[in-house]
Design a protein around this nucleic acid. Structure first.
Length: 810
DNA sequence: CATGGTCGGGAC
DNA sequence: GTCCCGAC
């Protein structure tokens, strides 16, 4: 079957009351009880941002206050979002969302994270693959529980329709209904994997495009999935309010309803494309015409990581900022949060932001705010830390501030207008240079090690890897090779992962080989432990297996076009799997040039974090005690033919050893957690190494580029990019540096920077004049016709003349 | 005082 | 580059 934009199989996965589920997982006592997560706010018990289904049944909803919820449901529990630096801190939910997304990502590289708890998946390729490999008559209700087909009383009726009409039928588009049905089958497996591996439940919508998938996802909740066959679209639209459709939920939707005098989606089909274009505009007219017919060509973007990282704070009412000190304090807090999140991001994704934006709102008068934002492109020597973010943000805020001079600065200077909103965000990420930062990757590279990074040199006393390292020391090889070998042997020893089919289900079999001591090398005794938990696959093992032994055959599916027709997406398939669904990790994301045979540093880092997080989540299991050292000190040689060991033998050995004690942390580990646990210690080690290394790296880069930057700075100014070079308000002048007061602003400026500083004032003047004329021009065409959303807004919005910010400071 | 904090994206 | 909409 030919695949086109119109008959893709697109899925929206939506986590059910996600924040509540996260809280329930963290505190199992909450399970089954009515709960609502509140954002800490001392006023009336905080604002509710998530409600579980027990509480919903009792009438608790979002948008309510904690106190109201207590009224409706006295026994409700109200876990609250933790508070850091005076702000809600949603880190744990973000991490949980990532954990889920990583599971989803295994099933298709075409994954678009839409929010913290939602993701679109394009599983067209997987559906095609399965259609080829199975007998469609085998599809039954049993393989996809909790599945609904829109337009049918029962799923069985839908299945029966699809199979009864065979390949050619006029009643409905049978071929595409079949693809959705198979899609639903796969999605039920995806949801099952999510539940099994994370403990979270979700709902899903399965349709031919994003809009429809989103639409039906919410029709059966929680823990259910809904298919929307093409021929049921009109039925759905017949009673569907226009405002329920994505992009039509706001002012634009109001406008559509108003100018067309309609309320329901079905009514839109009476308009021709021309008519819609003339009443809206060309683009929106065509878009609406298509949507009205269930056609939405938006591709699912392959995007896992956010494009920007930001944080902001509403400072309404009394908490509005009125003095410079509190402004600085808030900027610093926001900056520090960005720093924290950036550090995590850099570790996982090996990238850094090139731009920063500060946004703010000023209260002009009662109920009238004006919002603005200013952006700044980082200089090469800017340290990506909270202090710099705050300093730059303040600069941007004050840059157009006439009369705001350091000499006037008092500790408590009041702002002329209260700041009611403050936000900092960073974006325009670029991948880091390969260079030395790929240290960890060097560890794992198959070729000769180039990195002079013996894990022993940097490791502190009491290293977590001591017992691993002992092995290497006895070997007669170079230090580097030893180091590589240490890790490889460690990994391989813990590693081999096989896939076998069992009762129609894919089980990941893990085999653990234990040979005797080297002295006794000849009499290898094999021990095998297996488990069906995907969760315990060792990434490190897979890495080595894929990267060096190549025992997993890689097959490239036919490329599949997305936006622009340029982007080729490769589906990496393990041939052992009939379904062709399980995609090994390490799939390059859309903006990476990595090949299939390589894992990016990002991936490795992500796995390190995951490994740590994963173990942290697992409760200790205490049974029989064995000595982990015995296992870790054992030989690393893996017998290739060992992989042929049969199931019953494995089972037998598995039963022999149930738990061991980790010599690192003393915890008792059940055997099936051994690999995970070993990875955990290795990951901890590697993460520390990498963190330390990155700090050094950043420091070096700043030093290297500094002189270069000073020159570049001047030339940038000549080009009019003046704002970049202004000295920070927070910069403390070194007394030893000869400096002079600027006659214009009174600020102390180092002599070597003085001419540059004066240039700045000139450029600033020009900038201001330019801004004024632009603003005047803008005001003359207020609410231009082309700005649909604005001009058509039912809310009359007075365009506030944009005064320069400085006029709001005294 | 009172959905708040994040995201992505379109328009100009 | 700024502004602001839409959505969770």
């Amino acid at each position: 079957m030919e695949t086109t934009r119109e008959n893709r199989v697109v899925v929206l996965i939506d986590m059910d009351c996600f924040y509540c589920q996260v809280e329930e997982k963290l505190n199992p006592e909450l399970k089954g009880k009515p709960i609502a997560v509140v954002q800490y706010n001392p006023w009336k018990g905080g604002g509710i941002i998530a409600v579980n289904y027990v509480a919903r049944a009792m009438g608790v909803t979002r948008h309510m206050r904690g106190d109201e919820a207590k009224d409706k449901c006295p026994e409700i529990q109200l876990p609250s979002v933790p508070c850091h630096r005076g702000k809600a801190d949603i880190t744990k939910y973000r991490d949980a969302g990532k954990e889920v997304a990583r599971v989803l990502q295994r099933f298709t590289p075409l994954l678009e994270r839409a929010s913290i708890d939602e993701a679109y998946l394009d599983i067209t390729a997987a559906v095609q693959h399965r259609l080829k490999s199975i007998n469609t008559s085998a599809i039954s209700v049993e393989v996809m529980p909790n599945t609904f087909a829109l337009g049918y009383e029962t799923l069985a009726e839908f299945i029966s329709d699809v199979s009864r009409f065979g390949g050619d039928c006029m009643e409905f588009d049978c071929e595409h209904a079949m693809s959705l049905l198979v899609g639903a089958w796969i999605v039920s497996e995806i949801r099952e994997a999510v539940y099994r591996e994370t403990g979270y439940q979700c709902s899903a919508g399965i349709a031919h495009n994003k809009i429809l998938a989103k639409l039906v996802c919410g029709m059966n909740k929680p823990n259910k999935q809904t298919v929307l066959p093409k021929h049921s679209i009109n039925l759905l639209y017949k009673s569907l309010p226009i405002k329920k459709v994505k992009h039509l939920g706001g002012k634009f939707g109001d406008h559509v309803c108003q100018v067309l005098s309609v309320k329901l989606m079905g009514e839109l089909q009476t308009f021709t494309e021309r008519e819609l274009q003339s009443r809206l505009d060309e683009k929106n007219g065509t878009w609406l015409y298509n949507i009205a017919r269930g056609v939405d060509l938006e591709p699912v973007q392959a995007r896992f990581n956010p494009k920007s990282i930001g944080c902001c704070k509403q400072l309404r009412g009394k908490s509005a900022l009125t003095d410079l000190m509190s402004l600085k304090k808030w900027l610093r807090d926001l900056g520090d949060e960005i720093e924290d999140r950036l550090e995590k991001d850099a570790l996982e994704n090996n990238r850094n932001p090139k731009q920063m934006v500060v946004s703010f709102s000023l209260q002009l008068s009662e109920g009238r705010d004006s919002s603005s934002s200013r952006s700044y492109n980082f200089a090469p020597d800017d340290e990506l830390c909270g202090e710099i973010f705050a300093a730059k943000a303040l600069e941007l805020l004050l840059d157009s501030a006439e009369g705001c001079r350091p000499k006037d600065e008092e500790t408590n200077r009041r702002l002329k207008a209260p700041i009611t909103f403050l936000g900092i965000s960073v974006g325009k990420f670029e991948d880091n240079e390969n260079k030395k930062t790929k240290k960890i990757k060097d560890f794992f590279s198959a070729g000769p090690s180039t990195a002079k990074t013996d894990i022993r040199e940097k490791s502190n006393h009491g290293s977590k890897c001591d017992n691993i390292i002992k092995d290497a020391k006895s070997e007669n090889i170079s230090e580097d090779a030893k180091c590589d070998n240490v890790i490889k042997s460690f990994v391989v020893k813990n590693a081999p992962v096989d896939v076998c089919k069992d009762a129609g289900k894919d089980y990941v079999m893990r085999k653990f080989f234990q040979a005797t001591d080297k002295e006794n090398n000849s009499s290898k005794q094999r021990r095998v432990v297996e488990t069906s938990l995907d969760k315990q696959e060792s990434f490190f093992a897979k890495f080595l297996k894929n990267d060096s032994t190549k025992s997993t055959e890689i097959k490239l599916d036919k490329s599949y076009n997305t936006k622009g027709g340029n982007q080729e997406v490769y589906i990496k398939t393990d041939n052992n799997l009939e379904s062709g669904l399980t995609v090994p990790r390490g799939i390059p994301d859309n903006d990476s040039n990595e090949t299939n045979s390589n894992y990016s540093t990002s991936t490795i880092n992500a796995e390190i974090n995951k490994s740590i997080a994963l173990f942290d989540e697992d409760p200790d299991e205490i049974n029989r005690v064995t000595d982990m050292r015995k296992l870790l000190n054992s030989s690393s040689i893996v017998d290739a033919e060992a992989t042929e060991s049969n199931y019953s033998h494995n089972q037998q050995v598995a039963n022999e050893i149930e738990t061991i004690q980790c010599t690192e942390c003393g915890k008792t580990i059940s055997m099936h957690m051994l690999n995970t646990h070993a990875d955990y210690h290795l990951a901890l080690k590697l993460r520390d190494e990498e963190r330390q290394h990155m700090r050094q790296e950043r420091e070096e880069q700043r030093k290297e580029k500094f002189s270069e930057h000073v020159e570049a700075k001047v030339s940038r100014q000549e080009k009019g990019e003046s704002n970049k070079s202004i000295a920070s308000f927070f910069v403390k002048l070194d007394d030893s540096v000869p400096s002079e007061s600027c006659k214009q602003c009174g600020k102390r400026v180092p002599l070597y920077d003085l001419s540059e500083h004066l240039d700045f004032h000139e450029a600033q003047k020009l900038n201001r004049e330019l801004n004024r004329s632009v603003l005047q021009a803008n005001n003359s065409v207020t609410n231009s016709v082309k700005r649909k959303r604005k001009s058509t807004s039912p809310v009359k919005k007075v365009k506030v003349p944009c005064k320069s910010i400085d006029s709001f400071f005294r």
